[in-house]
């Protein structure tokens, strides 16, 4: 499926009559990129440059990435670096956990007609509709009872719940893993789990990468769960950390004699780089994978 995207790249020759479409597309690209451009430009400015009335979409006279960098990584004892590492931990532990569970469950739902399967699957689909904010409240209380709040687990465990990932894996496994191959392996005497590892897993790779990427994005971008669960700022992921700086910058008396907006903007820029790089380098996989669940 994924390779289909790139293979058919040379299908249609370019035609001049698409020129208006190109212009339209160029406009759209500008619209979607303006905020990124703003981020890049403004992370070079001091607060005087930010608010002093210069052009918001162009550099001011003194481009000072260096000073902003230094401040960003030294402010509050260099806490920003720690936030980045926390985000990486939550994203990887949360994303990998969610993906492993989704792969196993999706395969189970797709390839086994076990008792209660339909009911379980229907409940699973219903779960997609549950507002995650509604879960944060009771989950917090339950975690507090077992002393799990304000630990890394309070952020990681809830992100393992990814019903949509299970649904995607189910659809993919159902279509891309032929029963005949599995049966053949079983006839050869392979156990169920071994069959899964040897036969199904390689076939499911594009879907796995897609679900992994989506889960990692969801964890990396998560805001309200860690905000509610963590009170120790040294456990914050970078989203909540930047949120903390924003609220510090907007609360009287909290920022003291230091301007935070410059490092908030540079910190935002740096925090989005890893995901953008991941998407760009892995595009071969996820672009096809995202159509999962919609083809049938």
């Amino acid at each position: 499926m994924s390779s289909g995207v790139t293979q058919r790249g040379s299908r249609t020759p370019r035609r001049p009559r698409y020129l208006p479409l190109h212009v339209l597309l160029a406009f759209l690209v500008v619209y979607f990129l303006v905020p990124f451009w703003w981020l890049i430009v403004n992370s070079s400015k001091s607060s005087a440059g930010l608010f002093g009335g210069g052009n918001a979409l162009w550099f001011s006279d003194d481009i000072d990435y260096g000073e902003n960098f230094r401040q960003l990584f030294t402010y509050g004892g260099g806490i920003y670096r720690r936030w980045l590492l926390n985000s990486a931990l939550y994203a990887v532990a949360g994303g990998v956990g969610a993906t492993v569970l989704a792969v196993l469950a999706g395969y189970g739902f797709a390839k086994y007609r076990f008792a209660g399967r339909r009911l379980a699957f229907a409940i699973l689909l219903g779960a997609v509709m549950v507002p995650t904010t509604a879960l944060v409240i009771p989950t917090f209380i339950l975690f507090a009872k077992i002393d799990l709040t304000n630990t890394v687990w309070a952020v990681i465990l809830p992100t393992w719940l990814n019903p949509f990932g299970v649904y995607l894996m189910h659809v993919y496994a159902r279509d891309a893993v032929p029963d005949e191959l599995l049966d053949a392996a079983r006839v050869d005497g392979a156990g169920e789990f071994r069959t899964f590892l040897r036969i199904a897993l390689p076939l499911m790779r594009p879907a796995i990468i897609t679900v992994l990427l989506l889960s990692i994005v969801a964890s990396w971008n998560n805001y309200f769960l860690p905000l509610a669960m963590l009170s120790d700022n040294r456990l914050f992921p970078v989203t909540v950390g930047i949120g903390l700086w924003q609220s510090t910058a907007s609360t009287y008396g909290a920022a003291g004699g230091q301007s935070l907006w410059s490092i908030i903007i540079l910190g935002s820029l740096i925090s989005v780089v890893p995901l953008i790089v991941a998407f760009l380098t892995l595009q071969r996989y996820w672009q096809g994978g995202l159509s999962l669940g919609s083809l049938k």
Partner: peptide, 24 residues
């Protein structure tokens, strides 16, 4: 196969119950 099916689904099922059904 019935058992195997449940075993594949079980890890997610546990998370589903503890992180969704229970809080809900």
């Amino acid at each position: 196969k019935n058992l195997a099916g449940w075993l594949f689904v079980a890890p997610f099922g546990i998370v589903f119950v503890t992180m969704l059904i229970l809080p809900l």
